[in-house]
């Protein structure tokens, strides 16, 4: 089927549109038809220009107030659709809020939601592609039945490119009464301090794993990342152990990163870690076990002890600067 209208659930924080939203808008443009954004927030004017630049002609804005966006934004979307303003496709990021809104909308409209997508096509049927088993198998799934089709995509699945449009027209839409469902209240937001580039935007990522041996050894990962003007990351093993915050986690349940260079130190390379970093242009791995699975994806594999190799690497880089 030819797609006539696609909605993209738009996410932003402090007036800055999330990269996943720009990626989805770019992909939506390539499917043909009209691209519109659906935003849950009071400051739609602040994001309309960027959304327009990436291809949205309109941005529907529903204000959830101090509630979580799931119930109110899904209800606002459903009200539009039931009122006759029906897109063929609604694209979401596989993110905290994206999952909440998409899940609620799917139940409200009684339509399936295809999750964890890495690609979508609309030649005849609308099909979503998934990677399973740690990315070694690709599965294609087609929607049956009536649109709108709801699909969620993993971050970094598409490149974000501007399309040259002007600011999107802001269309404020009402949030219908959501009853009990909408009775969540965000009391306070805590933002963790961090310096340097963001993990999922950095050109270089240096990640540490259980092979570091102890929490205080993570310092060398941070130091190396800083010297390379990159971001420090981690495997889930050391996040679960409490060595570093969850925000550092790379992998299936953490961040997907696609840097120019990814350095894995003391990480075995479990499939759930690999899916988060296999897209890096260049991978360097340091592991003392020559059979560690991480070496199967490394462009440069060093069989050695992180406690020896990394300090020397830091020293050599310091000597150069």
């Amino acid at each position: 089927m030819a797609v006539s209208t696609t909605w993209v659930y738009a996410e932003a924080s402090e007036g800055k549109v999330a990269s996943i939203t720009l990626e989805l808008l770019t992909k939506a443009r390539s499917l043909g038809g009209t691209v519109e954004a659906f935003y849950g927030g009071a400051d739609a004017e602040a994001v309309a220009e960027t959304l327009g630049k990436y291809g949205a002609t309109k941005v529907y804005a529903a204000d959830p107030g101090d509630a979580l966006p799931g119930a109110p934004v899904a209800a606002a979307m459903a009200a539009q659709i039931e009122g006759g303003n029906r897109p063929d496709l609604i694209l979401f990021g596989q993110t905290y809020d994206g999952r909440d809104v998409a899940g609620r909308l799917s139940a409200k409209l009684d339509r399936p939601a295809l999750t964890n997508g890495i690609d979508i096509s609309a030649n005849g049927k609308v099909e979503v592609r998934n990677a399973i088993f740690g990315g070694n198998t690709l599965v294609q799934t087609a929607f049956d039945g009536e649109p709108p089709y709801i699909a969620l995509f993993r971050p970094k699945s598409f490149a974000a490119e501007e399309g040259g449009g002007g600011a999107a027209e802001v269309v404020k839409v009402d949030v219908p009464d959501t009853g009990l469902s909408g009775q969540t209240k965000v009391l306070e937001r805590h933002v963790e301090e961090h310096t340097g580039p963001k993990l999922d935007e950095a050109e270089i990522v240096v990640s540490g794993g259980r092979g570091l041996g102890a929490a205080d050894k993570y310092e060398m990962i941070e130091q190396l990342a800083k010297l390379l003007k990159g971001a420090p990351g981690a495997s889930r093993a050391i996040v679960d152990a409490g060595w570093v915050p969850y925000a550092y986690q790379v992998g299936q349940t953490g961040k997907v990163v696609k840097p120019n260079v990814y350095i894995a130190a003391g990480i075995s390379g479990a499939t759930q870690h690999l899916v988060g970093m296999k897209g890096a242009k260049n991978i360097i791995a340091i592991n003392k076990d020559k059979d560690a699975p991480i070496f199967s994806v490394a462009d440069l594999g060093v069989v050695g002890d992180v406690h020896k190799v990394v300090p020397k690497l830091i020293e050599a880089l310091q000597a150069r600067s």
């Binding site: 339509r111 990677a131 087609a142 929607f143 340091i286 490394a298 594999g301 050695g304």
Partner: peptide
């Protein structure tokens, strides 16, 4: 209301160069 239309192996990333650390890796 969905149908799996294709299952295929993904392109594998190839392993590159492996060096053993002799103090100069």
């Amino acid at each position: 209301r969905q149908e799996i239309t294709d299952v295929a192996p993904a392109e594998e990333r190839k392993a590159g160069e492996i060096v053993e650390d002799e103090g100069d890796a």
